[in-house]
């Protein structure tokens, strides 16, 4: 190749461009294309097969007029709210406890994190058995002599979602703990020395000084937990199948049932578009925040 002429831009880095074709296809065709396709077809009356019979916002009207969807949203709100509060608090407390230069730190960390390696199906089935009204925790306590003890959330429509929560926390808090622990370990050791010199009690140092310094880890944890909440599906299928009644139905399951069981694709597309919207509500402020941080620092 002669060095005289500036080569065509298109062929500069050609191998790199060819090698990036799978990435380009994934980003453009799957992530953007398929999402856009679903959003567009949510405005059609597709049933068994996708059809371009435009019905405007009919699917959304019907969606928000359906009891099962409303209950799904309520369940998601309860599950999500509790999951966020408890997993973050518990995760932080666990991380703070492990950060006290204790013995057996590795053992405890291993124990707290192993459920995260397990699938939601395994988690759901395990907790279905743990909470079994005939043989589970209720029976254990009754065998100790507390004959009137009741703890069978999965059979009670008012509490079933909390039974799912128990399983969700068991599976997911370890992850929050790991992120928080990384955040704690990332803080300058001198902060601790300074607060000890100033005579500030430990718990106060954690809340007033350390937590604000861990903003990055906190936000990561919130985003991870929040997006996993919106996606929750396998756990419900395995643990309760959405029951009793509609007590543990969630949006992701609504979508799946509409698309692959009830042959009501349009409803499925509309409901999944709503899920996308929920994620955007979490994601966009976070992205803006990260972008600003990057520009500042």
């Amino acid at each position: 190749m002669s060095g005289n002429a500036r080569p065509n831009r298109l062929f500069r880095n050609l191998s790199s461009k060819i090698a990036s074709i799978p990435m380009a296809l994934t980003a453009l065709v799957i992530f953007i294309g398929c999402s856009a396709w679903t959003v567009v077809y949510s405005f059609t009356g597709s049933r068994l097969l996708p059809k371009t019979r435009w019905v405007g916002v009919d699917q959304y009207d019907r969606l928000w007029g359906t009891d099962r969807w409303i209950v799904s949203i309520e369940n998601l709100a309860i599950y999500g709210g509790c999951m966020l509060v408890f997993s973050l608090t518990l995760g932080f407390v666990m991380a703070a406890l492990l950060d006290q230069r204790i013995r057996f730190e590795n053992t405890f960390r291993t124990v707290f994190l192993y459920p995260y390696a397990l699938s939601f199906v395994v988690t759901g089935l395990t907790w279905q058995w743990m909470l079994n009204p005939t043989f589970g925790l209720q029976k254990v306590v009754r065998d100790f002599g507390f004959v009137d003890f009741t703890f069978a959330p999965l059979t009670n429509s008012d509490f079933a979602i909390y039974g799912v929560l128990l399983a969700g926390l068991w599976q997911g808090t370890g992850l929050v703990m790991v992120i928080m622990l990384a955040g704690l370990r990332g803080i300058d050791e001198d902060i601790w020395k300074a607060s000890r010199v100033d005579g500030i009690p430990k718990w106060k140092t954690y809340i007033m000084i350390v937590l604000p310094l861990m903003r990055g880890a906190l936000i990561t944890a919130v985003v991870l937990v929040a997006t996993s909440i919106i996606k929750v599906f396998d756990l419900i299928v395995a643990q309760t199948q959405g029951g009793p009644g509609l007590a543990t139905e969630v949006p992701a399951k609504y979508v799946m049932d509409m698309m692959f069981r009830n042959q009501n694709l349009g409803q499925g597309f509309a409901a999944s578009t709503m899920m996308l919207l929920f994620v955007m509500i979490i994601l966009i402020p976070w992205a803006v925040y990260e972008y600003r941080e990057k520009r500042r620092g």
């Binding site: 190749m1 002669s2 060095g3 005289n4 002429a5 500036r6 080569p7």
Partner: peptide
């Protein structure tokens, strides 16, 4: 003496 501006 050789123009190498765009050579590898």
């Amino acid at each position: 003496g050789r123009n190498v501006t765009w050579d590898e």
